[in-house]
Design a protein around this nucleic acid. Sequence first.
DNA 1: CTATCTTTGTGCACGTGTTCACAAAGACAT
DNA 2: ATGTCTTTGTGAACACGTGCACAAAGATAG
Lengths: 255, 255
Amino acid sequence: MATGRTHRPATRSRGIPEATVARLPLYLRALTALSERSVPTVSSEELAAAAGVNSAKLRKDFSYLGSYGTRGVGYDVEYLVYQISRELGLTQDWPVVIVGIGNLGAALANYGGFASRGFRVAALIDADPAMAGTPVAGIPVQHTDELERIVGDNGVSIGVISTPAGAAQQVCDRLVAAGVTSILNFAPTVLSVPDGVDVRKVDLSIELQILAFHEQRKSGEETAESSPDPAAPPVRSVTGSRKGPDGDMPAVMPA
Amino acid sequence: MATGRTHRPATRSRGIPEATVARLPLYLRALTALSERSVPTVSSEELAAAAGVNSAKLRKDFSYLGSYGTRGVGYDVEYLVYQISRELGLTQDWPVVIVGIGNLGAALANYGGFASRGFRVAALIDADPAMAGTPVAGIPVQHTDELERIVGDNGVSIGVISTPAGAAQQVCDRLVAAGVTSILNFAPTVLSVPDGVDVRKVDLSIELQILAFHEQRKSGEETAESSPDPAAPPVRSVTGSRKGPDGDMPAVMPA
DNA sequence: CTATCTTTGTGCACGTGTTCACAAAGACAT
DNA sequence: ATGTCTTTGTGAACACGTGCACAAAGATAG
């Protein structure tokens, strides 16, 4: 069982760095907004500001796609929208299934950004038989038993998992077996998939914890770290040596 | 190593790499699971597998926190849970407000992972007066007018924005003005905030686009990239030179 | 106490991503 | 045409993150 190999061997992704790929959707969004305002061209400086990155980075990112700018002028908005869309594969239709129609699944099904760009919700799937047939966001929920058929019939290659953590791996396995090769996982679990299958995870809890870390740093400026220990810190329950009476417990204090 | 007294600044926690911080919640989750199964100790190899990372990385990550392991044995689960929790600031209570109680906001309010670790939903806020008073996840929704008071009264420092894109920046500004210094943004917009305020974004649409990119690469293996252009590629509408008929258009080929 | 065995902690090399800073490309005015 | 002015595209330096490989720490057995 090939665990989610974290390392990308060589990212056969001919050339374009992963970090750049991750920013392309950001540029695309900014460009789309400009396009709607009928702005004909934009400089790297302006576009970078709109996308929240620095202009040198943006230019380098674009340079991986090709030379689409005009020196002295900037980039043609429409042209760039097309090129980035194409590079991201958004010029084709991507049928997507959402598995797990709870609060989150329903919210995803209703999310407009889905359909806005090439993505089409082909089906909503849930394990609860009581939900079968109930329309969510105008799409009737189907039972998990139909999963394989749905994926096969619709040629679905992207699956979204919004089930409870406990069911995620199993759903993942079934999706993969049915032919899905890209998974967006909202369940708080590490999924293991065979090589060739991409998994991206979105984890609210993790994001909050990262914020808490920085938040603590900010407020901890004055509180220093001499705080003894509010809650009784568990004592090392190792085999038994090392831990001493209890005076050296938090041992770590760098002296 | 004969570290002698190279001890880092009194704050041993200074300088934890961002990449490490982002993984701590992952380790914490794996450790919590082990703890619930009453597993006393775990080796870097086992824990790494559970967290989906490689063991060397895990050990290096932990080394930034201090020497919490025992050579020849591994790490004490309970002790490590405590240390990581503390490092992440999860030993204290973080009141959080969620602004924008649409489908997504409601899903977030109901999300269990929220309360599970130090985070407490202090209030739900929405601009729709009709929602005021309606309980969502057992918490009555309050009107946006109350935002400043709520943040102030509860000492909220973390805000979650799940409003439509158009309202996000405004809500963000108000949150920041009211004292919030960390924001988790679900709206598909780039937020601009003053220095000292952290923003993390969760963007479904972007994740899907990244998946589509890789998906296209996979299926494009055979199709090569010689595909001319399915949809009429917009012609460069620059001032007028360079663009030629349409022969040199896609010009990009990796080269 | 000594030997052996396991697993941590980390120096080092390598790869990826970011930023600077500037030459070259082209627009535009004269 | 020629010169000036703007903005791109990119080489090179730097910063950051990753993974290998191994010595040192400690457990454990004899």
